[in-house]
């Protein structure tokens, strides 16, 4: 079965959706303002004769006309980082502030983590965790190239993330026992990356979806528990499957003290609301506040992003 056909009933302009999924994605870079201003990075690209176009919703997110970002002086200096355009959303939704304690539960290879550091102005504490030691080296390499100094890298299973290394239940004045904000950019079936990886759906199966759902629920629940009352948790995936999106949110709403919150993407970025019914199941009506990103709306990859507040 073609997995994307499952979504004919929930996606408007389904033919345009399918056509967009077949087109390759443009190469996009984000300016790392910890090392250079947007104006200076763009001036350096101009001097190198690298053609680009700023997205109409962010002056520091640049679509390159041709070559990848790796072979230019501004990239060498760590002024730029290759990051798929749509994946900029969850860090904007999380909105971390300088001085916050922030947990990125599934951080590697780090494009969203390094964006969080930039939004925090490299201040406060950013916990970048991943359970895959091999992918952690990519996270470290990216953070180093971008000159980030507020990142602590850990290698734990996010479902059982422990603050013990951070002095949990001690009287140390520098201990960390909870975070202000957490990002769960969960491992998923990656349907939305089809434009980047044309073989992304070759291994697709309902069994695989069901196996990652268990992991997603576990990580999101732990993120809510690890975040202080009043704090923010953002849940995102790069897939369309409601089982991995709204159903996971619904599970968190039923089992943990949290509520969906409204969040508006930048003006000019068009999204669709979360769905409340799928395959005979009904979800909490508040999951409508989540954002579905379809490739034909903004010429990006596919994505899902929701903002929660911890209430207890």
């Amino acid at each position: 079965m073609q997995p994307l056909e499952r979504y004919a009933s929930i996606v408007d302009e389904f033919d345009a959706f399918r056509a967009a999924c077949d087109r390759p994605l443009p190469s996009v870079v984000r300016v790392n303002t910890l090392k250079a201003s947007i104006a200076r990075a763009r001036a350096a690209l101009d001097a190198d004769n690298v053609e680009y176009e700023a997205t109409d919703w962010h002056p520091g997110i640049l679509r390159l006309e041709e070559r990848g970002p790796g072979t230019s002086w501004p990239y060498f200096h760590g002024w730029l980082h290759g990051q798929e355009e749509v994946s900029v959303l969850p860090a904007l939704a999380l909105d971390p502030q300088p001085g916050d304690v922030v947990w990125d539960a599934c951080a590697a290879p780090g494009s969203k983590t390094t964006q969080l550091a930039d939004l925090m102005d490299d201040r406060g504490v950013l916990l970048g965790n991943d359970n895959n030691l091999g992918r952690l080296s990519a996270l470290r390499h990216n953070a180093e190239r971008l000159g980030i100094t507020n990142l602590v890298v850990t290698n734990q299973d996010a479902r059982n993330f422990s603050f013990k290394p951070f002095g949990d239940r001690t009287d140390d004045e520098n201990r960390i026992e909870a975070v202000d904000r957490a990002l769960v950019d969960a491992p998923c079936s990656c349907e939305g990356t089809i434009r980047k990886n044309p073989d992304a759906l070759d291994q697709w199966s309902m069994d695989h979806v069901e196996s990652v759902v268990g992991i997603q629920k576990g990580i999101l629940r732990r993120a809510v528990q690890a975040t202080r009352a009043g704090g923010t948790v953002v849940y995102s995936t790069c897939t369309f499957a409601p089982e991995e999106n709204e159903a996971v949110l619904n599970h968190a709403l039923e089992t943990e003290d949290c509520e969906l919150r409204e969040w508006e993407p930048p003006a000019g970025f068009e999204t669709d609301p979360g769905i409340t019914e799928w395959d005979g199941d009904e979800y909490d009506p508040s999951v409508e506040l989540a954002h579905r990103v379809y490739p034909h709306r903004n010429d990006t990859g596919g994505f899902f992003c929701a903002k929660l507040e911890v209430t207890g």
Binding site: G147, N150, N174
Partner: peptide, 19 residues
């Protein structure tokens, strides 16, 4: 390594700030 904030010492993590 230089780290932008302060945490408990010693701390057994993979990396801490920038080498």
């Amino acid at each position: 390594w230089a780290f932008a904030a302060d945490v408990v010492s010693p701390i057994p993590v993979e990396s801490l700030g920038l080498r």
